[in-house]
Simulated scan of single mutants.
Amino acid sequence: MADMDPAEKIKELAATLASVSAVLDLEAMGTQIAELREQSADPELWADQDNAQKVTRRLSVLESTVNKVNGISQRLDDLGVLFELAEIEDDADTKDEADRELEQLRKEIGELEVRTLLNGPHDESEAIVTINSQAGGVDAADWAQMLQRMYLRWAERHGYPTEVYETSYAEEAGIKSTSFAVKSAFAYGTLRGEHGTHRLVRISPFDNQNRRQTSFAGVDVVPMVEKSDHIDIDEKTELRIDVYRSSGPGGQGVNTTDSAVRITHLPTGIVVSCQNERSQLQNKATAMSMLQSKLLARKREEEQAALDEIRGDSVSSWGTQMRNYVLQPYQSVKDVRTGMETGNTSAVLDGEIDDFIDAEIRWMRSRERQDG
């Protein structure tokens, strides 16, 4: 494509955008938008808060998608004019501007193309990400905190709101665990390929002999539950609820009351915690929502495992070691499933992981088509 005339490049991108638009079915989206706008204008809608939020959230997602496609289409038209202007006036600065816009449009159309693959039953949901330090001692705790920063920076780069529910700090450095929400449509579908074990190799900053250390952290991604999704829980017999005082790094108190809440689901052993709110009741409500999400994810995994057994499916879970981050003796980040690799480790750890995420989504959809 590098040797193509700019007009041909624009034509090729326009054809890709047309294919994406056909898959998204903008006409059907427009019909849905009109219906949802009519519902949202009904004063009675807000009598049911949960349904009202569902309607407005869906309306926002559809409007955003349609506006994105239409905006890109208009920018492609404008870009053709910009290239013509640069050629007529022999203006190098205008040509550079047009080249940058062309590359940006190629990236945005590629992102839309990947979005068409996010059609699973829960892909449109917001996500809860949980990170746990694993083997590697203090280096693993430090590594877990590095991963937390990587994902929060990724979300920040995209303008996705996040909310940290709980962080358990390690004694010397780093964190034992953390849970946070990414509050954006399609966050779960986008991030679910990140589920698995992340391996770090580096010279340990905590080793006075400067030896190379390998450490591990586990990343778990589940969809945020809708109010309509529900698993019955008997709080009296199935839950152990502990309250404690929130704390920061090094045991520093961040709250003077026992408002943090830890819930253990006794039948499964699943533990969730929340300490971000001042109110114990708010923390309990958030923790219960997290527990519902994890129980639903577990239920889906069990149902899928049963189907795989019936089919004789021997394909192992995706939740194994999935990415290696090597900082010494060379610089490399490589996904062991997709083969995606880069030597720019600092950019990745600063949240530039879109190439890995896109490759994961394509890989998962390819596997699902094979399995189906």
Rank of each mutant, 00 (worst) to 15 (best):
M1Q: 09
M4L: 06
A7N: 12
I10F: 05
E12A: 06
M29I: 08
I33H: 13
A34I: 06
L36V: 14
S64W: 01
T65A: 07
K68Q: 05
L76P: 01
V81E: 07
L82F: 13
F83N: 02
D90P: 07
D96V: 12
E97L: 12
L102H: 02
K107M: 13
E113W: 04
A127G: 08
V129F: 00
V129Y: 00
I131A: 05
N132H: 12
G137R: 01
A141L: 06
L152N: 15
A155D: 12
H158D: 10
G159C: 09
T162N: 12
S168Y: 03
A170G: 04
G174E: 11
T178M: 15
H195C: 15
V201R: 00
S204R: 10
Q209S: 08
N210Q: 13
R211E: 06
G218F: 04
D220I: 10
D220A: 13
E226M: 00
G253W: 13
R262L: 00
P267I: 11
L281F: 09
K294C: 07
K294F: 12
L295P: 00
R300Q: 02
G312K: 01
S314C: 00
V315A: 02
T342S: 07
G351A: 02
D354Y: 06
E360Q: 14
M364D: 01
